[in-house]
Simulated scan of single mutants.
Amino acid sequence: MTDRAQRVFITGASGGIGAALARDYAARGATLGLLGRRREALDSLAAALPGTHHVYAADVTDHAAVAAAAHDFIEREGGADIVIASSGISCGTLTERPEDLPLFEEILAVNLTGTIATFAPFIESMKNGSGARRLVAIGSMAGIRGMKGAGAYCASKAAVHSYAEALRLEMKRYGIRVVTIAPGYIATPMTRNNRFPMPFLMSAERFAARAVSTIARGRSFRVIPWQMGVAAALLRLLPNAVFDALFSRAPQKARKLPSGAA
């Protein structure tokens, strides 16, 4: 890296993990592009951060608006060093309920397609860039194994993991590292109303510090906190019969309108 400030573009920046990442990067002197649905929250965040940053009020499902924001940031800053797709929503869903089908579609549109739409407009300029360049997908522990009542969310995050892995192979020849970070339970609006135990619950600020370190090192995949990484490794190894016996009676996420998008 040169001595110039890092240029970091973050979606989902109006709350939760995205806002925590913005605060951490700004404290390190980065220049930020902050995209989220809630303009007032974005303006408040930007005003509280050291430095001058760019605010874009848009939904990641509005692909034209995301592309316009990306191109504006590239033009103003001469490119981006780090792009973080942090927008996400979650709610309980049941396949047998016809009224839940639009929720499945919405969760996949935000969590998966929104990630793709975030990265797409930056890739060409990043290919022509130099130094440490990162595309960062925020996945989830929920993408490791499916959990009852959370089919849409688990499917969306499993897809994010696989998509980012494919993109990592595509970007390798250009020196662009694709980093996937799978949060465990992080104290954000998305987890606030969970009605079940959340082991190793971590503050968004502590998560952000660890995520920034992971991004700097260019690690391909990391679960944060590390204790949940151990749990993830064990879950991958469980035979289906054992997994089904252990989790078929576990509490499940409540069915309600999606929450957590920022």
Rank of each mutant, 00 (worst) to 15 (best):
P239L: 02
A216I: 04
R173I: 09
S130R: 14
S125E: 14
G88Y: 06
K253L: 15
Y56I: 04
R222A: 12
I176G: 01
P50Q: 09
G143L: 09
A209P: 01
A232H: 09
A241K: 14
R206K: 12
I138F: 08
M126C: 08
R222E: 07
V212L: 00
H63F: 13
A46C: 09
V179M: 01
P239S: 03
A232G: 14
L167H: 03
N194E: 01
D81N: 11
L49Q: 04
E40I: 08
T214Y: 01
R28G: 02
F9R: 11
A5Q: 12
D62S: 03
G139F: 01
A208I: 00
A64F: 07
A67Q: 03
R37I: 11
A109H: 11
L237P: 07
E106L: 11
L237I: 14
D81F: 03
I84V: 15
A80G: 04
I215P: 05
M126K: 07
P239I: 03
A22H: 10
R134C: 00
A204L: 05
A41L: 12
S90P: 01
A47M: 08
R28T: 00
R168A: 15
G146I: 05
A142M: 12
F104S: 13
A57P: 15
D81E: 05
M228H: 05
